[in-house]
Amino acid sequence: MTTATTPVPPTPLAGRQTPLTRLRWAVSDAAALTGRNLLAYVRLPQLVIFSTIQPIMFVLIFRYVFGGAIQVPNGSFVDYLMPGIFVQSVAFGAVGTGVGLAEDMGKGIIERFRSLPMARSSVLAGRTLADLVRNVFVVFLMVVVGFLVGFRVGTNALAFLAGVLLILAFGYALSWIFALVGLGASNAETAQAMAFPTLFPLVFASSAFVPVDTMPGWLQAFAANQPVSVTVDATRALMLGGPTTSAVLQSLAWTVGILVVFAPLAVRRYRRAA
């Protein structure tokens, strides 16, 4: 056996770094972990397939099975449907953030990360950023599927792109909610089971698949104002046409609000998850 020869200078003590150096390392650590999490998606494609097969099934079912029976304000149901599907895809994908964290906690790898001189924020940043990249892929795929089943943009490319960015930002915010859920779960299965009771009412009691005014009055109050509906409405306005300002601002307000509340909660939970 050869003896170690690579000169490794003594690690500078992490506690003696300047704020700027610390920030630089925090970015580097988050990037390293984002890469690590993305590699897992490449090596285990079933993780991504799970979050794409389901929305594709929804597209096909709503487009060809239920679609004919659903009346929407401005004619084409497939145009109405696809913005809802895009938001649903990122919302269900956000569960993956919690599942991934719960899995890492269970395997002890987070213990190792916590014993390293790396930035405390990087595990959560790396996880949510990797899931953001995955969402870019998933949304792109759903756009292709949408075009294949007859979806057409009624505005212009720039507005369409703004809609996609709005959805990705919303998905990123949701990731932090499920990060908090995942850190509190004892394993990946529990994280998944805990996520769905929150997610189902948000995704289905919404304007994603059917117009809210077809619902009973007591439900309309919730369905019209909850974050998924607001984001779907804003996306529709951007992609199909109609007044955008109020809907987009409302959606952004939800995104920022969710981040402001849940990111600190998740970080606190991570620090204390000993």
């Binding site: 690690t11 003590l13 992490a14 506690g15 690590r36 002890g108 001189p117």
Partner: peptide, 21 residues
Amino acid sequence: AADVRSLIGLAGQYAAVDANL
């Protein structure tokens, strides 16, 4: 704590390596 982390190595009861890497 941050200084200490620069000076220690830890291997635990479970092989805490990433199975996908």
